[in-house]
Design a protein around this nucleic acid. Structure first.
Lengths: 342, 342
DNA sequence: AAAAAAAACTAAATCGATTTAGTAACAAAT
DNA sequence: ATTTGTTACTAAATCGATTTAGTTTTTTTT
């Protein structure tokens, strides 16, 4: 019902074969020596009948759908929303459309979604995976489906991955806190700590303090129970080995939850408690105090990921660089970590 | 390369026709009297050969792709990101995948994207349109492509639309401000003021003050120059007919830009200037002062939009309710509009 | 024993494009 | 006069499913 006009209709209307119409519309007129007049008549018919090519039919024949699957944990998370937007722009500019899927950090859901996307014959996949080992995705990669990991890598696998310098970012934040005189950090991680990004942020952070002879308390909160978990953590200091003088929120959602609890408890930042966060959010530079954060190179990550994916998709047997590509992060120092200043 | 195994392979492996395999896999075995043993052998082969159906081929034959296009102005805007997430969940639960597209409030881009989605044979479209009249979309609707507008409607057209109670929301905010003693509001709208949501929010707001004998200053800022426009507006009071005592930010981005400027200018909210916003954001209940905002019924809007779209998609000639469906909003009163309290 | 019914399947058409392997008509070269 | 080459096209196969319209074999009914 939606699309009545086909190549055949155009062909009949003009009085030529549908082969010719197809060739003309695909810009192969010159190559096949089709006369200018005929081309013009085809174009005129296309306009007159308002022909729109059926991409499904074309995809079946060519084996290319012009679609890419983008799989993240939650598209409503500002970080992934921004990433999706950047990626969408690149994809659209290159003639691709993007399926966006949220996994909620659920491995089985991730696998179901990826299988579904492959059944839809996506030309490529960009995945921020929640899986703990590379096997399953490796099989997909080896089966020939172009795949690029983003934001998170999967250990020493040879899967192509584009990530932020998470370890370095964690270290930058730790150094900033230490310089400002903070000595007893509480690291709030996620129960999905096996995920490379989170793990490395924490490692980078903890290493610095360890190097200065200080220990960090590390606690995890659940992805689906973030708010209450963070709150009970902050409200019950007896659960910790010591009273922390600063907080490291391992991503933007953890930071927002912490800020909410701390506001309710009327804890004064940065003096009673310092706060730093991995991921920058627009509101971090608005609120009082402004929040020190590591900003991820979202545009660069998308750019690189798309570039690598496209190399794999055109697949001229170019050997695409495998392994992990790490892009530099930026430390935005703001008042939430400035103890001295007061 | 991605998908080697086809129905034919299964058929040969089992020693039956591909018709039979198709019937079995589509659950029509009973109906076609196919024996249990044969079914089992088919299932076994599917598992053994790791068969995944080619959705493109299926779509070509059935005329259904199981895809929906979601077109919004910017997926990185928190409001649309949340909306997309809710919609994605509904779609996925019903076997659909979602293409998400951002228009940047550019009418031509919107039309290009929608045309592209139609060429991809999406089963339905959900659009938050930037267009100023209904004609173009009407043609699409009439051509039989299931279409539901969301967040914004297009005047008196008979296009199905699901929107928030924007006018009422604007009025709620105005009443709140007036009750608290504010008398001289500055309304910060968008240069895309023709858009129904923005227009109605402003109308609802202004009407209330007019009813009390007060005038509002109304100014517009550009979608792509939001931050600087808002800043110059707030930094140059001489451009206004009077010195405002409160601000109405017409959406979340405007509010964030305003907060940024006001923080830089060290303006005290709510006493020097009251502030209310249409759209609620997580950080509004964290910052000092907390921000009074109207919360949109995102889940309900998605639920209704999907429901209506699905009715149109199955298209059993059920007459789907046309026109505008308005869902109630919620006023979250917080400190940014509480003059009295101080 | 013939006809009808039921059970268990299959051949071929179809969706709407792209692509391969041609053909027909005419001019130019040998 | 035959071959070669160009120009301007086309018939038919193909992608991988679904669906229509059967067919064959066996069983049941009359």
């Amino acid at each position: 019902m939606a699309n009545r006009v086909t190549l055949d209709h155009i062909a009949q209307h003009v009085g030529v074969s549908k082969t010719l119409v197809s060739l003309v519309l695909n810009g192969k007129a010159q190559q096949y020596g089709i006369s200018r007049q005929t081309c013009d008549r085809v174009f005129a018919a296309v306009k007159e009948l308002n022909y729109r090519p059926n991409q499904t039919a074309r995809s079946l024949r060519t084996g290319k759908t012009g679609t890419i699957g983008l799989v993240v944990s939650d598209i409503s998370n500002t970080f992934y929303a921004q990433l999706a937007r950047q990626f969408e722009d690149l994809a659209t500019a290159n003639g691709y459309s993007v399926f966006i899927c949220s996994t909620d950090e659920d491995v089985e859901k991730e696998q179901r979604l990826i299988t579904m996307l492959r059944n839809r014959q996506v030309d490529g996949l960009v995945v921020s995976s929640s899986q703990s080992n590379a096997e399953w995705l490796m099989a997909i990669n080896d089966s020939g489906t172009p795949l690029v990991l983003i934001d998170r890598h999967l250990g020493a696998s040879t899967l192509t991955a584009v990530v932020a310098a998470n370890r370095n970012g964690g270290a930058l934040l730790a150094n900033q806190l230490f310089e400002q005189g903070y000595r007893h950090p509480l690291v709030i991680g996620l129960s999905t700590n096996h995920i490379s990004s989170v793990a490395e942020r924490i490692e980078g952070f903890v290493e610095v303090f360890k190097g200065k002879g200080q220990t960090c308390a590390i606690r995890e909160v659940g992805f689906n129970t973030l708010q209450p978990d963070v709150h009970s953590l902050l409200a019950n200091p007896k659960l910790l080995p010591f009273k922390p003088d600063c907080l490291f929120a391992v991503n933007n959602n953890v930071a927002t939850a912490a800020l909410q609890s701390l506001a309710a408890m009327r804890v004064k930042i940065p003096n009673e408690l310092g706060l730093v966060c991995f991921d920058d959010l627009p509101y971090f530079s608005i609120i009082e105090p402004t929040i020190t954060a590591v900003e991820q190179p979202i545009a660069a990550m998308c750019g690189k990921a798309f570039e690598l994916l496209q190399l794999k998709m055109v697949g001229d047997s170019v050997e695409v660089s495998q392994g992990i590509l790490e892009l530099p992060v930026k430390l935005n120092i703001r008042r939430s970590s400035l103890k001295k200043s007061k």
